[in-house]
Design a protein around this nucleic acid. Structure first.
Length: 416
RNA sequence: GCGGUUGUGGUGAAGUUGGUUAACACACUGGAUUGUGGCUCCAGCAUUCGUGGGUUCGAGUCCCAUCAAUCGCCCCA
């Protein structure tokens, strides 16, 4: 039978894996610099962890991979935050020092129509800072993401920033939006008819009705922010200024998940060819997730980066990743010397080198070609004659210099 | 979930109004040189054109379905 990867999934082949390792390592390093610690949660959770009450997001309502196991419904995680907060509460991590600074890296699953920069199984790195509702934390969080983007050579980015305000501000604004749009229902698309009931904020984000004249005069969120919310947002902006991180305030930015409060942000690629993968990372503050899962009344903030997009955009911007599969030393064997080749290879491996040894009955010529392919720096040649004499030939592939030395001097010679 | 485009070997691809042996290039394998590579030359490498049906004397070429890729919408990372 011929099987292939399910729609929206993909294989990472050996030739690409070095780039992934390099990117992942850089991310781990930066997360550590900000003193975040990795946490790993299951790839599936009880469906209720993601499908919370009154959630109107597309992700929860039509993009989840859910399945029954016995009486319980489970769902492949479509995002990272919910699982982290569930675990934070389950293990009562709020009993330890706050804020908790956690990060995760791994696969997420959403049933969407795939296209460039959008898969059904994709990889996210994300951070969650829980228990410190301070504007500096919001700015630091964005700075961490920017560091990652910069470390991978991505230049053309833009930070979009907005605030949704606190509960009081937001519910006042939602009522104002409903009151404004109700008389104009016939001007809005079908999705927006649903949104006006569930989450009128999303109407502003609608691409279909974007051009409608009524949008221009819609109530402005920022007119409904109370002093406290305004002051908080101003301090976030000040903190970003202090970090010299440029940003644009986008009042229409509301994000796709319903749990956000106060600060929300999105970092997008400004490359024209980025298409559907324009958003590199996005996130925001959430005031009620920790208590939703049974913990205390703590606020958190976090973001998630799509690693497939990050990798692609970094390549597009000219970042060069290490090649996969190259060797330091290639051991060529001539005649019946297989076990001697193996012993030599392992001696070199013990000394820390990456070594390939040929055991195939191939011609000398083809073994040299093979050594070229793995870009070996040294080629070691052992034949039956050398075996008898206890010597070995070593060729430097850059200088083309070849020497014959005693076998026990090999490691020392290659170490230089 | 909706709409457009595409689908020939490991890769890039030719394939004429359907006509019967599926170009060419690169890569790969072997040889020329049975112990020294990256050049050259020679040879080999798709019983088959994403898959399944249909039309036809005859289909890679036409029709339908299906799967996949890709782009746009929606949404998001």
């Amino acid at each position: 039978m011929n099987y292939q990867t399910p729609r929206g999934t993909y294989d990472i082949l050996p030739e690409e894996i070095a780039a992934w390792h390099e990117m992942e390592e850089k991310i781990h390093t930066i997360a550590k610099k900000y003193h975040y610690q990795e946490m790993r949660t299951p790839y599936f959770e009880s469906t209720g962890v993601f499908a919370r009450e009154n959630d109107s997001s597309d992700m929860v309502n039509k993009e989840m991979y859910s399945f029954m196991s016995g009486e319980e419904s489970y769902t492949l995680r479509p995002e990272g935050t919910a699982g982290i907060i569930r675990a934070f509460d389950q293990h009562k991590l709020y009993g330890q020092e706050l804020p908790a600074k956690l990060y995760y890296m791994g696969a997420m699953f959403r049933h969407e129509r795939p296209q460039k920069g959008r898969q059904r199984q994709f990889t996210q790195f994300g951070v969650e800072n829980i228990g410190a509702k301070q504007p500096e934390v919001d700015a630091e969080c964005i700075a961490l993401g920017i560091d990652i983007v910069k470390a991978l050579g991505i230049q053309s980015v833009k930070v979009c920033l907005n605030t949704l305000g606190d509960d009081a501000s937001r519910s006042a604004y939602k009522e104002a939006l409903r009151a404004y749009f109700e008389p104009h229902l016939d001007c809005l698309c079908g999705d927006c008819h649903r949104r006006i009931k569930q989450n009128p904020l999303r109407i502003l984000d609608c691409k279909v009705d974007h051009e409608q004249p009524i949008m221009a005069d819609a109530p402005k969120l920022h007119d409904y922010l109370n002093e406290e919310s305004k002051a908080y947002f101003q301090k976030v902006c000040d903190a970003l200024d202090a970090l010299k991180i440029p940003y644009e305030i986008d009042e229409r930015l509301v994000r796709g998940l319903d749990y956000y409060t106060h600060t929300v942000f999105e970092v997008i690629s400004t490359r024209e060819d980025s298409g559907a993968q324009a958003t590199i990372f996005g996130g925001g503050r959430y005031d009620h997730l920790v208590d939703y899962f049974g913990g205390p009344d703590l606020s958190g903030i976090g973001f998630a980066i799509g690693l497939e997009r990050l990798l692609q955009l970094s390549k597009d911007d000219g970042y060069v990743y290490q090649e996969s599969g190259n060797c330091d030393v290639y051991v060529i064997g001539l005649g019946e010397v297989g076990s001697a080749s193996l012993a030599i290879a392992n001696e070199l491996r013990d000394a820390g080198f990456t070594v390939e040894a040929n055991y195939l009955p191939r011609s000398l010529k083809s073994q040299f070609k093979s050594a070229d392919r793995v870009k070996a720096k040294y080629i070691v040649i052992i034949g039956e004659d050398e075996l008898k004499q206890g010597t070995i030939n070593v060729k430097n592939t850059e200088t083309k210099e070849q020497v014959t030395i005693p076998m026990d001097a090999l490691v020392g010679y290659i170490k230089g």
